[in-house]
Simulated assay, not measured.
Amino acid sequence: MCWGCFSSKTDFSTLPAISLNRSLLFPSAGPILCSGHLRMFKTLKTKYFTLCGEAPGYPACLEYYDSKQKFLNKETPKYRIFLHNCFSINKYSDTRQKYCIALNMMDDCFCFVLKNEKELEDWLNSMLLLQNGEPHSTYEHVWQVNIQKKELGSNIHGPYRLCLTNEAVTFVKLGAKYKSEFINVPLQFIKRCGFRGRVFYMEMGRMAITGAGDFWMETKETNMAFNMCVNIMNFMTNLNCRKEKIEFQQRMRNSSKDENPYSNTHSTFFGYKTKASYLSLLDFSEDRNYN
């Protein structure tokens, strides 16, 4: 289909997230919001990237060229991703690279490397504003895992993205077509988590939509399993802190003026309670049976 046939009412969600067929690509019509030489995550090769804003009939997109000269010559971009077809755009880092941005699509993930924190924030905020109108990622962290076919994994197994917010974890099956297929588990329904080597596990409580039991997930490296464990536990700790603080404030408001407001407020020092809970939940034990 010729791009010139699209109108401002075209449903861009039906377009492929990544277009590699040169005959389907078209000259960018939107304004260039960011541009510069950046590196590919996997190969570390330098490419010329451009972030294009929306224009009538043209969705916002990220694209790259083999060189800046090819961009100036208005040649076909080597690669293009439509931002509205990404379910999450967020920071990403591992042992090799610190300043990366990941564009997560239903069936793929594209990462590129930036030079420093400021450049990362500039590109990320610009993409998020184009995607959802505000500089906030849908998910704070997204990890690709392979859920093993055991225990709770008997029904939910294979390649998934594990997505984390400050309220919940979400399982997104690789290749899912609709957001209704996402499985959302509030953090308060997770009993504990841990890891051993490249294997990460989470124990669900009986109130979770999955039922009680363990999920076992294989990651690509031990450092990823460790980061998953630490970040999820930190978010669980912060959630407990917020809840205990709210409960304490409600008790203070409900206390009568004649009562001693500090007579029975063990949650005043909620940090100590939370720290103890954190240590009891975080599990690095060697005797955990994951075979």
Rank of each mutant, 00 (worst) to 15 (best):
residue 236 M to Q: 06
residue 248 F to T: 03
residue 228 M to P: 00
residue 265 T to V: 10
residue 262 Y to A: 10
residue 256 S to D: 09
residue 248 F to M: 09
residue 267 S to D: 15
residue 248 F to S: 00
residue 266 H to R: 13
residue 232 I to Y: 01
residue 261 P to N: 09
residue 254 N to D: 15
residue 231 N to L: 04
residue 236 M to V: 07
residue 265 T to Y: 02
residue 235 F to A: 13
residue 247 E to W: 06
residue 243 K to A: 07
residue 265 T to M: 07
residue 266 H to F: 15
residue 259 E to T: 12
residue 258 D to W: 13
residue 230 V to K: 14
residue 252 M to E: 03
residue 244 E to T: 07
residue 255 S to N: 05
residue 250 Q to E: 15
residue 267 S to R: 08
residue 230 V to L: 12
residue 238 N to P: 00
residue 229 C to N: 05
residue 252 M to W: 03
residue 260 N to P: 01
residue 260 N to R: 06
residue 235 F to N: 07
residue 244 E to A: 12
residue 247 E to C: 04
residue 227 N to D: 13
residue 241 C to T: 05
residue 230 V to A: 06
residue 242 R to T: 05
residue 253 R to T: 06
residue 238 N to D: 12
residue 250 Q to D: 14
residue 267 S to N: 15
residue 266 H to V: 14
residue 266 H to D: 15
residue 256 S to L: 11
residue 243 K to V: 10
residue 263 S to T: 10
residue 256 S to P: 03
residue 250 Q to G: 04
residue 260 N to S: 03
residue 267 S to H: 13
residue 234 N to E: 04
residue 232 I to H: 00
residue 265 T to I: 07
residue 256 S to T: 15
residue 256 S to H: 14
residue 263 S to D: 02
residue 249 Q to R: 10
residue 227 N to W: 05
residue 241 C to S: 09
residue 252 M to S: 03
residue 261 P to G: 03
residue 251 R to Y: 04
residue 248 F to W: 08
residue 235 F to Y: 10
residue 227 N to L: 11
residue 247 E to D: 14
residue 246 I to F: 05
residue 238 N to K: 14
residue 262 Y to N: 09
residue 241 C to R: 09
residue 244 E to P: 00
residue 228 M to K: 01
residue 241 C to F: 10
residue 234 N to F: 05
residue 227 N to T: 14
residue 246 I to V: 12
residue 257 K to H: 08
residue 263 S to G: 03
residue 245 K to W: 07
residue 227 N to F: 07
residue 257 K to G: 02
residue 234 N to G: 05
residue 228 M to V: 01
residue 256 S to R: 15
residue 237 T to Y: 09
residue 264 N to F: 12
residue 258 D to K: 14
residue 251 R to E: 03
residue 240 N to T: 11
residue 242 R to D: 04
residue 265 T to K: 02
residue 244 E to R: 06
residue 233 M to L: 13
residue 242 R to Y: 00
residue 257 K to P: 02
residue 255 S to D: 01
residue 265 T to F: 01
residue 238 N to A: 09
residue 242 R to W: 00
residue 257 K to R: 13
residue 237 T to A: 11
residue 261 P to H: 10
residue 234 N to Y: 05
residue 248 F to V: 02
residue 257 K to W: 06
residue 268 T to N: 08
residue 253 R to I: 07
residue 250 Q to K: 15
residue 234 N to S: 13
residue 264 N to P: 02
residue 238 N to L: 11
residue 252 M to R: 11
residue 257 K to I: 13
residue 235 F to T: 09
residue 267 S to W: 08
residue 268 T to W: 09
residue 259 E to Y: 08
